[in-house]
Amino acid sequence: MTPANDIEVLASDRPGEAHAIRRTVFVEEQGVSEPVEFDDRDGAARHFVARVGSDAAGTARVRLVDADTAKVERVAVLPEFRGRGVGDAVMRAAHEYARNENRSRALLHAQTRVAEFYESLGYESLGPVDDETGIPHVEMVLAL
């Protein structure tokens, strides 16, 4: 697929559209249980939704976890929009938000199958692979 030129990323403290994308990707596609996916941290996060034209296509949430660190979580792109720059766009928005909140680093817990994507954005692995809900993950960090 070719990159979409009409990607817009909007931020919100209300996760409605983000939840729909996460339900499709994490619950339906990957088998994560709803109580695990939709945790009590949603209320303390800024949610980003990437739109391609009028379609919600991808999402991420960002939590400000300490004076230096923003944690990027629940990054998901709907299958029909993968490979079109949606993930890049939502991550750029998350990083911009973290910088604007004076955070010096972004932390995430990446599924190992997409760790290469985060490495392409400058993230570095911090340690060994661990299991989260039956899916291998690795902690990664990016200096902002």
Rank of each mutant, 00 (worst) to 15 (best):
V52R: 05
L126N: 00
N102C: 12
A115H: 02
L121S: 02
T59R: 03
D39E: 12
R99G: 05
V52N: 01
T69W: 01
D6V: 05
H19V: 11
R92H: 15
R103E: 06
E132I: 08
I135F: 00
E139I: 07
V129R: 06
R46W: 09
R41A: 15
T112V: 15
L10N: 12
L107I: 13
A20D: 14
E8L: 15
V129W: 01
F48M: 08
H137T: 06
V138R: 09
D6G: 09
M1H: 12
V72N: 05
R63V: 13
D13H: 15
L108D: 09
G127H: 01
T69R: 08
L107R: 11
S125Q: 14
Y118M: 05
T2W: 10
D40P: 08
D13W: 14
R51E: 02
G31L: 00
T59G: 00
A143L: 13
R74N: 05
R82K: 10
S54N: 08
G58N: 05
D66I: 06
V36M: 09
A94P: 04
G83M: 06
L78C: 09
A45T: 08
A45E: 04
M140G: 11
R22S: 09
V27H: 04
D66Y: 00
A50N: 00
Y123Q: 05
M91E: 14
A94R: 02
D42N: 02
G58S: 07
D42E: 15
G31M: 07
E8Y: 11
A94N: 03
H137S: 06
E29A: 12
P128Q: 06
R46M: 14
D68W: 11
E29P: 04
A94H: 07
Y123A: 06
S104G: 14
G122T: 09
A106I: 13
S104P: 06
P15A: 15
G43A: 14
V49G: 00
E29G: 13
Q30H: 13
S33N: 10
I135K: 06
V25H: 02
R14S: 14
E28R: 11
I21F: 03
G31Q: 03
S104A: 14
H95Q: 15
L126K: 11
V25F: 01
T112H: 10
E124K: 13
F26H: 06
D42V: 01
T24Q: 12
A60Q: 02
E119C: 08
L108C: 06
S12H: 03
S54T: 11
A106Q: 11
R82Y: 15
P15C: 15
K71G: 01
H109D: 07
E73M: 10
T112D: 04
A110K: 03
L121W: 12
Q111L: 08
L64R: 03
R105Y: 09
R92T: 15
R22V: 01
A76R: 07
P136E: 05
L10D: 06
V77N: 03
H137R: 09
V65D: 02
G85I: 07
Y123N: 04
E132P: 00
V9I: 09
E73Q: 14
D88G: 12
R23P: 01
A44Q: 14
V141H: 02
V72I: 15
E80V: 11
F26A: 05
